[in-house]
Amino acid sequence: MQYTTDVRIIRLMCTGRVDPTMIADAFIEGADGLMVVGCHFGDCHYITGNVQARVKVGLAVRLLDYAGLNPARISFSQCSSAEGERFVSLITAFDRSIRELGPLGTGDRLEPPVLKKKLHIARTALGREKLRWVAGKFTEFTTTGNKYGEKFTDHEMWRTLDTIIMDEMATHEILDALQSRPQAVLELARELRLPPPHILKYVLALQRRGLVGLAGVEGLSPVYRVIDQEAATAA
């Protein structure tokens, strides 16, 4: 029973402990791949920890994928403590697939410097209320339903999360960009490669939250700035 020496194991009591930001951290620090390995479904030592982990890891995969990381760099697998052979085969297969991808930034949608920046933004979004709240409600909404008794399918919940991922990434990228210097919507649109009307929508939403304000007008375009650096960092 032998496997690659290129893997390091970090022990947690349960995959339920896996915070989605930890997954982002691993790639920010430069990992080429990350496996989350826990109990088989229906046989979780902590009853439902792996069910929650499925949501948290799923969220991280989707967000990091959107941020430019190849989602094949993250694996969520099940293996019992009596299944050494299975563990080896999981690691061996994952190692092979990561080797095929190459180091971080080669098999991914974005190049290393841009990717790194996006990963930081993604990590911020993963630590914030919006995505975490929906992820936290995921199982309740799909099993017993919301407080009006409406039940949602997994598919519907993931679709909702996908929409929020887009919003959150854009919002935090805009905040990040404006923190370096005040900018107009068109400039932001160019830098972030998003359509100007989308940028405008997010900027106005940030303005309503009191995080972004008018810095002045350049030509015909209003220029926006971050009002309160501290609040913007915490947002």
Partner: peptide, 13 residues
């Protein structure tokens, strides 16, 4: 039991 689901979920950390 220390599974940590709560800590991984809390949006206020």
């Amino acid at each position: 039991k220390g599974c940590g689901v709560c800590a991984a979920t809390c949006y206020q950390h």
